[in-house]
Design a protein around this nucleic acid. Sequence first.
DNA 1: TTGTATGCGTTATCAC
DNA 2: GTGATAACGCATACAA
Lengths: 344, 344
Amino acid sequence: MARVRLKDVAAACGVSPATVSLVLNEASDRIPATTIARVRAAADELGYTPNTVARSLRTRRTHTIGAVTDTLITTASSAPMVQGALDVAWRHDHLVLWLGTEDQPDHLRQAIASLVARQVDGFLVGAMYHRRLPFASLTQGIPTVGLNAVSDDPAAPCFVPDDFGAAHAAVRLLLDHGHRRIAHISEPHGDGLARQLRVDGFRAALSEAGLGEGRVLVPPHWHEGSGFAEELALRALDAPDRPTAIFAFNDIAAIGVYHAARRLGLSIPDDLSVVGFDDYVNVASELYPKLTTMALPHRRMGQLATEALLARLGVLDGEAPEGVTRVACPPVVRDSIAPPPRDR
Amino acid sequence: MARVRLKDVAAACGVSPATVSLVLNEASDRIPATTIARVRAAADELGYTPNTVARSLRTRRTHTIGAVTDTLITTASSAPMVQGALDVAWRHDHLVLWLGTEDQPDHLRQAIASLVARQVDGFLVGAMYHRRLPFASLTQGIPTVGLNAVSDDPAAPCFVPDDFGAAHAAVRLLLDHGHRRIAHISEPHGDGLARQLRVDGFRAALSEAGLGEGRVLVPPHWHEGSGFAEELALRALDAPDRPTAIFAFNDIAAIGVYHAARRLGLSIPDDLSVVGFDDYVNVASELYPKLTTMALPHRRMGQLATEALLARLGVLDGEAPEGVTRVACPPVVRDSIAPPPRDR
DNA sequence: TTGTATGCGTTATCAC
DNA sequence: GTGATAACGCATACAA
């Protein structure tokens, strides 16, 4: 019942353990085909699986990636990021030890330390929303890539959404439909980097179209749910010079806009066009009318970050990009945009 | 730059490696306090961290749990399950290697095999929706616990939602408000176990109330999104003897009911009460009116499963329960239930 | 071409 | 009380 070891395979086909090792690792090209076949057959028959911990001790490579992220649960969008990383790692014979820090102070440091003790080959340090995370000092020289997070080390490869570009594209979508009075509902100030980038993208698109600075509505402080956006939208839409389109910071804020429109008897998209951000599962696609929004490329980011890390580890060919890479956020066009109403 | 090893701290304080090991593992009570202090001090000063792979090779324990689940991404609810498992494992000095199989055939077997090669101490085999998963034969005698999945080995501990009880409770909620004509919108037949259990809970509650079998609406085949439920609800609500309340299989189906009500000019909850299931993030709480629903205890299940596994591994005291444990699904009461309209 | 010897960093079983 | 010493399972430089 005990697991079969290299030694057993060697004994079974009358060669030394060294030979078996050479054959199984394809480390020597000077072994006769007959022995190779014999060894392979024996290994197969006995069901030999190398003991990776012994191998790791010897090679100083665990083929394991340590991943540390803040809480996994608050945002539904985390799963694709994880899955993307898992996939790529698995495809290249690596496994990942995942740890959620739940944002407890000092937990990040502890988590990294315990992964260092496990001899992980590299680190993925991630955040569930795009922000700055000072991790360069913690990973003790082990190759590290930021995932949805920007490092304090400017050279560290980091993969984040292109919030600016996506906001710009979202506004262009509205402009192309003929809208001229477009407002942006933002989120409260915080440590997230997306807020400012989306505001900037919004403003850039408007200003390029010769429409000035644009109107940005910012809730005074953070609230759970769409309530804050609803209030903001209500006030903006109830005024004489109301916007014909709203670009919402995210899909939740867009829900607030929908609620406000309903309360005011405005029809989307006939009276008001709306664009969201994030493409939340079961949200954007289930609103009535279905919400046009910018998708966060979480899965792609997870894949890219892991590929970059594997490149730095030498298991993949090619160079890992230095510094921050912005990943495109594709638009998901649904039913919430139409040309603006003729007159008012 | 090289990491400091046990040998180094032994040399630093003039004792043998064996002694250091004994001290650091508190394995002997016959070591004088002075040596203990000396060793501790040296270890601290040098920043010694045990190499866990060497330790694992020796102790045959990796303090690592292998977790295999089908795809992580299709359901948003997966993250709490993962987080719950990670938390408990971490709290007891264990780490988890997570693998998503993406439902590719044979991938489950491969995933388990590669985790076995890593010498994981135990397995968590999970599904993202409650179903049967034949994994007992794959885990090669390594302790295994099912997470949202039922094993083919009746003795294997498995943790699943109490779908029957929750459906029963949901219907009781409606009955207590005075409803008598209650319909259930189910999902199409598939390999999920929740469907039948929720139907059974629905029927049991009605029959206990002397209301017969109840009306169960089943879509003929699977569709993405809420469309199927909308059609079903539309037909039921447009008939002369329409239900005053609908218990939906899940929150997505509940959205379909909302859409149908809107199209028919029925007001929720005044004309129609609705109860959902799953408590999807950003869905149930953002509908108008906010949806009353039964929460899936994903996080709790993740925790319980991991605790059971650790108990089987001897790192936690207590026994792991044998067989299937049903975990309660707490109701989340919001605004979608009211007494039925007086007459019609 | 294959086998022998040694080391990877621990823990554990002994003597001393 | 403490220190040699032998595993743990594998990889590899070198010898044969």
